[in-house]
């Protein structure tokens, strides 16, 4: 009996699945397996130093929820940081995008690059630069304040618990506002020019264009920006570690720092994993919450 030749579509499907194998393997090895292993090991007393561990059930999780006030204090710092940083970053990013898109093309190119530049600078360089800016004796901010006669406002910006978190937020906004701006800018490019021109002919002013065109027509981007920024803030580590090291005291100590200390100083890797899983769940829930809040409006 003669074999039926394989359909072209079937061949294509096989080829498609074949091409998928490398990425599936990579995902399994470097993503799914570590996540699964982390979840499993969060139920153990693993020290992280050897293969010796034993099951301790939900002990790590019970400890987090009943006897780890510092974890929740740090979470509070994360949440405050996420709320303020997100609001500032989105507002600034949006305003900058509106300004850039209304510029002449050659200025648009210049500002797109200039405003995006901080995104690609390493966190270590950014923190060193901003530490100099914040230094009380010879920092830019205090020197400027002294120059304009506002000496009374001079502060040790990163060493004062009232201003340290604000200092981190400013640095973070400087770093990422360009990223938010680029996403908004790309979304604004999709708004048909003739619609905006018609509105202007009908007498719409700049504010009305923003209120009735730019804002509603970039809602999807707002959702993406919101989720990216909030989840980024909840997982924040590098800029805090490098700029304030969690201080002064515990005023800017974020959850990731506690996780690191638990794993690398107390050798409680299992507990650190449980702390990470709790943080992961909070980030996922926050993301789902925002999707839930914003999704129905998208359909309207």
């Amino acid at each position: 009996m003669q074999r039926k030749p394989m359909k072209l579509e079937t061949q294509r499907k096989i080829l498609g699945y074949f091409f998928l194998i490398p990425i599936v393997v990579l995902l399994v090895v470097f993503m799914f397996y570590p996540i699964a292993k982390s979840i499993v090991m969060s139920f153990t007393n693993w020290s992280g130093m050897s293969d010796d561990w034993k099951w301790i059930g939900f002990n790590n999780y019970i400890r987090i929820f009943t006897d780890m006030p510092e974890y929740w204090r740090a979470m509070k710092v994360n949440v405050i940081y996420a709320i303020i940083a997100t609001a500032v970053q989105l507002t600034l990013g949006f305003i900058m995008a509106v300004m850039v898109i209304n510029m002449k093309p050659r200025w648009q190119n210049f500002y797109k690059v200039a405003l995006y530049l901080p995104v690609i600078i390493p966190a270590a360089a950014i923190s060193v630069m901003w530490r100099y800016i914040y230094t009380p004796e010879y920092g830019l901010i205090n020197q400027f304040l002294r120059a304009i006669g506002l000496d009374s406002l001079c502060r040790a910006w990163t060493a004062d618990p009232d201003t340290a978190l604000g200092a981190v937020i400013v640095t973070n906004t400087w770093r990422y506002a360009g990223f938010t701006m680029v996403l908004y800018y790309v979304a604004m490019l999709d708004i048909p020019k003739d619609v905006l021109e018609s509105a202007q002919i009908d007498g719409a002013n700049r504010w009305q264009l923003i209120r009735y065109f730019y804002l509603p027509l970039t809602r999807g981007t707002t959702e993406v920006n919101l989720i990216l920024t909030i989840t980024g803030c909840l997982r924040a580590f590098d800029i805090f570690y490098l700029l304030t090291a969690g201080g002064p005291g515990t005023s800017t100590k974020v959850v990731s720092m506690w996780i690191m200390e638990t794993a690398f100083q107390s050798y409680k890797y299992g507990r650190a994993l449980a702390m990470s899983i709790v943080l992961f769940l909070i980030v996922v829930l926050t993301m789902l919450l925002f999707r839930f809040i914003l999704a129905p409006r998208e359909k309207e």
Partner: peptide, 20 residues
């Protein structure tokens, strides 16, 4: 015993106290 990050925590508590 393995005092972990006890030294750091004590230092942080002192800074919190100093600035509070």
């Amino acid at each position: 015993y393995n005092s972990g990050n006890k030294g750091d925590l004590t230092g942080q508590a002192f800074v919190d106290y100093c600035l509070s």
